[in-house]
Amino acid sequence: MHTRPTAGQATTEYVAAIALIAVVLALAAPAVGAPSIGRAVVAQLERALCVVGLDICDAQMAAAAGLAPCPLRTDVTGHEVSATAFSIEVGHRWTLTVTPNSDGTVSVMRTASGMGGVSAGFGGDVSLGPVAVDLGGQAGARARIQGAYGWTFPDQAAADEFLDSALKELRTDRWPQAWVSVEGSGEVSAMVGAALGGPVKERLDLVGLTGSGHGAIGARLVHDGNVVTVYGRVASDGPELSRPLLPSIGRGREEWLAEYTFGPDGPRELAFRHVVPGDRDSVQTEVVARLGLRDPANAAVARPLLDVRFPWGERDRARIAAVADRIVSHGTIERTVSSVADGSRGISGSVRGGTKFGAAFKRIAVHRSLVEASARAGGFERRRLDCQAPSR
């Protein structure tokens, strides 16, 4: 008597058979002079494997599951400048972020911010003839106002045209922004290090170990539909080892973000983000948990939290936990892992002649590439194969 195989066994055997055929075709097609046929067949078989595995295979499936496109890679460039006099510090930061997405679109963001604060230092000198080595530290508190504009282009060619011309002469009639945001933040920081001094008390910072904490509240307006997102962010940065004209080394930036989105028709979405650095800031993992508020049942669970004044704190732990449980059962949880290459370089120094004057400059260059992505939607974890960069 023969027993029938279970559904699970049949699925496993089917997947194994498809995988074997894919390997044979991948090896055989180039040998007979038809590599394009082999690639096309293998691509279709890979999709079949994806569907059988209940993963997310393309942009259409991602949209049906309520998932946003994945950022395939991100390039952040810009600069940061600061100056200090009489313990008063001022500065500005400018960045440009370009992100090709898994659905073929390209996002571009330009940010500009101004900063003001106070700082105080401590330490002493070790003299070696005409040269002195300063050992000490510095602590500071700063406030920052930041504005940002964002654009979304249908493909890389349109984004390249914008980047080649629009940033030199920004014309909002030809390049209207998709969204605009404003943010206010506070920061505290501390640094210990060593600097090389001269006979007139000029200093060149040699090495420093820094750490900082940030808190921010902001709002973003999407022009299409007048959709508003208000958010609060808390972050810790460092410890980070900095050296003149060399990339900094450190743990990286860990960030927690809460977002509430609404439009003229009412609440849209509640989202929580957590970004964690790893492997000395060469890897970054981001988890985004979302709950759609157009569903009346979801909105009812979230209402006690939304009725509390923003930002939320320790007193709201029970309300946040209720929303988190609802997200697990009826929302989406997206996870991306990216490699990070930080080529930012900076230099700083100061002159003291009764009064201290200092300046610092940093050129920002950060590249991130998507390594893997997954999403929990429909009650179980699914790989996001739609987020893989297209093969060439």
Rank of each mutant, 00 (worst) to 15 (best):
Gln9Trp: 15
Glu13His: 13
Val15Thr: 13
Ala19Gln: 14
Val24Glu: 13
Leu27Met: 09
Ala28Phe: 08
Pro30Gln: 06
Val32Ala: 03
Ala34Tyr: 09
Ile37His: 10
Ile37Trp: 14
Ala43Met: 04
Gln44Tyr: 01
Leu45Pro: 06
Ala48Leu: 06
Cys50Leu: 06
Val51Cys: 00
Val51Trp: 00
Val52Cys: 05
Ala63Glu: 06
Ala65Gln: 08
Ala68Asp: 14
Arg73Lys: 14
Thr74Lys: 15
Asp75Cys: 00
His79Arg: 10
Ala83Met: 14
Glu89Met: 10
Gly91Thr: 06
Gly91Ile: 03
His92Asn: 15
His92Asp: 15
His92Pro: 02
Trp94Gly: 14
Thr95Phe: 14
Thr99Cys: 11
Thr99Pro: 15
Pro100Gly: 06
Gly104Lys: 09
Ser107Ile: 08
Ser107Met: 11
Thr111Trp: 07
Gly114Val: 15
Gly114Trp: 12
Met115Tyr: 04
Gly117Asp: 10
Gly123Gln: 05
Pro130Gly: 04
Ala132Pro: 01
Val133Arg: 02
Asp134His: 12
Ala139Leu: 13
Ala139Pro: 03
Gly140Tyr: 03
Ala141Gly: 13
Gln146Asn: 10
Gly147Leu: 13
Pro154Arg: 07
Ala157Lys: 02
Ala158Gly: 01
Phe162Met: 05
Lys168Leu: 09
Glu169Thr: 11
Asp173Ser: 15
Trp175Asn: 13
Trp175Leu: 09
Gln177Ile: 05
Ser181Asp: 05
Glu183Met: 08
Ser185Phe: 01
Glu187Pro: 00
Met191His: 04
Ala194Ile: 04
Leu196His: 07
Pro199Gly: 02
Pro199Arg: 04
Thr210Cys: 03
Gly215Lys: 04
Gly215Ile: 06
Ala216Pro: 02
Thr229His: 05
Gly232Glu: 10
Asp237Glu: 15
Gly238Trp: 02
Arg243Ala: 11
Arg243Ile: 06
Pro247Cys: 02
Ser248Gly: 08
Ile249Lys: 01
Gly250Met: 00
Arg253Glu: 14
Leu257Ile: 07
Gly263Trp: 01
Arg268Gly: 01
Val276Arg: 11
Asp281Gly: 00
Gln284Thr: 13
Thr285Val: 14
Ala289Lys: 07
Leu291Glu: 05
Arg294Phe: 03
Asp295Tyr: 09
Asp295Phe: 11
Val301Met: 12
Leu306Glu: 07
Val308Asp: 06
Glu314Lys: 11
Arg315Cys: 01
Arg319Thr: 00
Ala322Trp: 07
Asp325Asn: 13
Arg326Cys: 10
Arg335Asp: 00
Thr336Pro: 10
Ala341Cys: 03
Arg345Met: 01
Phe357Trp: 15
Arg363Met: 04
Arg363Phe: 07
Val366Met: 04
His367Leu: 08
His367Ser: 12
Arg368Asp: 06
Leu370Arg: 10
Leu370Tyr: 08
Val371Cys: 04
Ala373Tyr: 08
Ser374Glu: 12
Ser374Pro: 01
Glu381Trp: 08
Arg383Phe: 09
Leu385Asp: 12
Leu385Ala: 12
Leu385Phe: 12
Pro390Lys: 15
